[in-house]
Amino acid sequence: MTIREQPRQVLKRRASKRSDWKVALVFLLPLLVMYAIYYLYSIGFLASTSTTKVSVTFFNSIDVGWRNYAQLLTDPVFIRSMVNNILFACISIVAALTVAFFIATALATGVRAKRFFYLIFLLPALMPLSLVATIFGSMLTERTGILNQTLRAIGLGALAQPWLTQPGLAFAVVAVIFCYLIGLPIMYYTADLSALPTESLEAALLDGAGTFRIMRSIIYPMMRGTHITIILSLLLGSFRSLEVVLFSTRGGPGQSTEIVGSYIYGFATSGGPTIGFVSAVSIIVLVIALVLSIAQMVVTRPRKDMR
């Protein structure tokens, strides 16, 4: 290639860049097929089914207009499960922003047996949720659960409680399970800590600040982006955690610990003509998920400019 030819070559390449869309279409084809089936078709199907009364066979559907939505928005159990969902998410967010942050920071300071600690703290988040919730459920069973047995054995029998069958306690149990699953936030913090700028830490050290002061006043504010990622991911995760409730309290007692996922699951498995109703709930959950996704995009965008 001679020197004179080079500009033309560059021009040609620029031109070819602009026409990449045909190639792009080929590379995006698998994605488009999956999205067309599982998202586009799904949303259309949900929208049309949500105005009908139909069973899971999809035969003999009766058009009921907006009645499913009306019934849904006036159902106290639905409202309750929505509120619970958000409450559990908020509780796990508080745990993540405090406990998970502490665990990640403490483990990053070069403690011994780091791998062992990681194993213990991250394991719950990597086990099937159904398994974690079942273990909690079996541990807290009133008569045979190990917690009450232990309390009785050490003479604190008076503290033994019907953990899963008294509304307030059952709520607390589900909240504890949500807090138990903070492995993901620990991972996010750990990753962000490894990219921490050293200068401010050293300045603080020169000022003679103590460990916990540095954690709280220097490192914590620097993790703003990670805090936001964690808040949004836990909020979204709470809609995916139906097993937590299903396998511990089964939504009880009296549907007081129901979350949106277990609410839908209950109707979907009831076997009656409830599929239209389930579709209406699904549409509402989808709208929430899409809004949160947009929020995430908007919030994480300025971060890109900052860095």
Binding site: Y35, F239, R240, V285, Q296
Partner: peptide, 15 residues
């Protein structure tokens, strides 16, 4: 594409 990052499986159960 990212819009669907947060869709919980239970929401597309019926379709």
């Amino acid at each position: 594409v990212l819009l669907f990052l947060a869709v919980p499986g239970i929401a597309i159960l019926v379709p």
